[in-house]
Design a protein around this nucleic acid. Structure first.
Length: 258
DNA sequence: ATGGCTTGAGTGTCAAGA
């Protein structure tokens, strides 16, 4: 089976891209971030026509996460247990025996800002919540927009980005704490070409010049990491008219969908 | 250059993203 994640930067604008992408890439699970809509206007019926059930944890204007799946979804949970947060950034569901956790991690704005503090607190709370989820569901995958480039090789210009937001050492340490829960970065399980990114700035021809960052990730618990056969980033949708600034990340698992 | 695009809000222009 295949599982994927994509920050769509407004599902209202990007729904045609999502439907086209699913038609060409019929993954079993697709996690979306930045839907930027309330649950009552979520396009359930359009996705159902495409063969996908959906769960959504949305809000107006900002944030919003969804899980699309061909199979049935059970034990749907919203947000981070025990962490008071008005921002809709987390959604989890069990699909085909896999625990899928979809996360839109805070951007942080600038190192040292209030939003940066929120980002670090949020990441700590997520790690605590995941520790418990992993005990109940060992077959867990954490997919989403992490807003963290884990290493310098995930950054087009590591010197310019050094200690900047998305690349600072406390953020990278928070990423490693997620890995230390036993999760593996699916992309790094394999030999990869250099200069592969998942996000490019809209400005200054960022995409054409491949000035990007790899900030969207799929982390896999041990049973899933052992079953992972490939992890790729699909740049094709980034080349379309009015694209999202993020590209989808896909992991192929040697597990039959139930 | 605290900018450069894009989106959503809402109708002039700003917040937020990364």
């Amino acid at each position: 089976m295949k599982i994927a994640t994509w920050n769509v930067n407004s599902l209202k604008v990007r729904l045609p891209h999502v439907l086209d992408w699913l038609a060409a890439n019929p993954v079993d699970v697709l996690c979306l971030q930045e839907t930027k809509m309330e649950d009552k206007v979520f396009p359930y019926s359009e996705l159902e026509v495409a063969g996908y059930r959906a769960a959504h944890n949305g809000q107006k204007t900002y944030n919003g996460v969804a899980i699309l799946a061909r199979g049935e979804m059970e034990d749907v949970r919203r947000d981070i247990a025990g962490f008071a947060d008005e921002q809709k950034r987390v959604l989890a569901a069990t699909v085909d025996g896999l625990r899928i956790v979809c996360a839109y991690m805070p951007n942080g704005q600038a190192v040292g800002s209030d939003k940066y503090d929120y980002k670090l607190r949020w990441l700590e709370a997520l790690a605590g919540c995941l520790r418990e989820e992993l005990q109940r569901w060992p077959r867990l995958a954490l997919l989403g927009d992490y807003n963290i480039a884990p290493e310098d090789r995930d950054v087009h210009d590591p010197v310019a980005w050094k200690d900047q937001i998305l690349c600072s050492e406390p953020e990278r340490a928070a990423f490693r704490r997620l890995v230390d829960l036993g999760l593996a970065d699916a992309f790094r399980l394999f030999e990869q070409p250099p200069k592969i990114y998942s996000w490019w700035d809209y400005r200054q021809m960022g995409f054409r010049l491949n000035r990007g960052l790899r900030i969207d990730h799929i982390l896999l618990a041990p049973p899933l990491a052992a079953a992972c056969r490939a992890c790729t980033i699909d740049k094709a949708p980034r080349k379309l008219e009015r694209p999202s600034d993020h590209a989808p990340v896909v992991a192929a698992l040697e597990i039959e969908a139930a």
